[in-house]
Design a binder for these strands. Structure first.
Lengths: 126, 126
DNA sequence: CACATTGTTTACGTTAACGTAAACGTAGGC
DNA sequence: GCCTACGTTTACGTTAACGTAAACAATGTG
């Protein structure tokens, strides 16, 4: 079920990006699809990585920063020697995300006001 | 109280950006400080604009998009002829912000898991 | 007065994240 | 056998958002 595989154009159309973008991500070392002949074949894991990269992008992360976050899940990084620095990294990310969340909530509150003024304006126009 | 004025370097250091950045924003028409002689003098309003631009940047907005949002508050845009399109714009912004908020919450949940694993790892090491 | 600080304009340089295009391979269908 | 769809590599182009540097003005301080 989770061992499905995808072509490059399948993923491109699913995520609304171009094949160029996907190859670019590979060129940057963000994903490592296997090959059948010379064609790229993407696993379910590759697909999730792309999905997470795009999620990172939506909230203003650079590609590098996105993979940094994604790789936090990678057990390879979880050797004891680096557990403390890992926790520190997680804390940093968390703080930044929380500020972003506050920023978004502030902006949403602002939009609420604008909308209220708009609707008030429409009532008066009636 | 709100009629204070600021020099370019004051604002730069307050916001942790360079004077070059502030001049660049002016060059792009994002702010319009007045002049005393040839020196730029920033009002409290200018200062808020910069603050809001930076808030937009933090959540991944382009400079243009930030001012677009900021200018929603501008009464000049609130003429009846455009009230409907204004409401539509507000709705678009809101939806995107809500998705960003979900993205952030998802990512925070992920970080929670990672942190839990870390702490578990540390306990076992003790 | 020298000089350090803070400001100015003008202009070329840089990085990230792709876009665009050329030139070609391969597999399936008529 | 040719076309079409889908894939490949290589490489130059583009845009946003500044950085960096040069060359100069204004202003206060020892």
């Amino acid at each position: 079920m989770t061992d499905r595989s995808y072509s490059i154009s399948q993923l491109a159309s699913e995520f609304g990006i171009t094949t160029r973008t996907i190859r670019f991500y590979e060129e940057k070392g963000l994903i490592h699809p296997r090959r059948q002949g010379q064609k790229r074949v993407y696993s379910a894991g590759d697909r999730v990585r792309i999905k997470l990269i795009l999620r990172g992008k939506r909230i203003g992360m650079s590609l590098q920063e996105s993979v940094e976050v994604i790789d936090l899940y990678d057990p390879a990084h979880n050797n004891r020697s680096q557990l403390h620095s890992l926790i520190h990294t997680v804390q940093d990310k968390r703080e930044r995300l929380l500020r972003q969340k506050r920023d978004i909530e502030d902006m949403l509150a602002g939009l609420d006001e604008v909308q209220a003024l708009c609707e008030q304006g429409l009532e008066n126009a009636d």
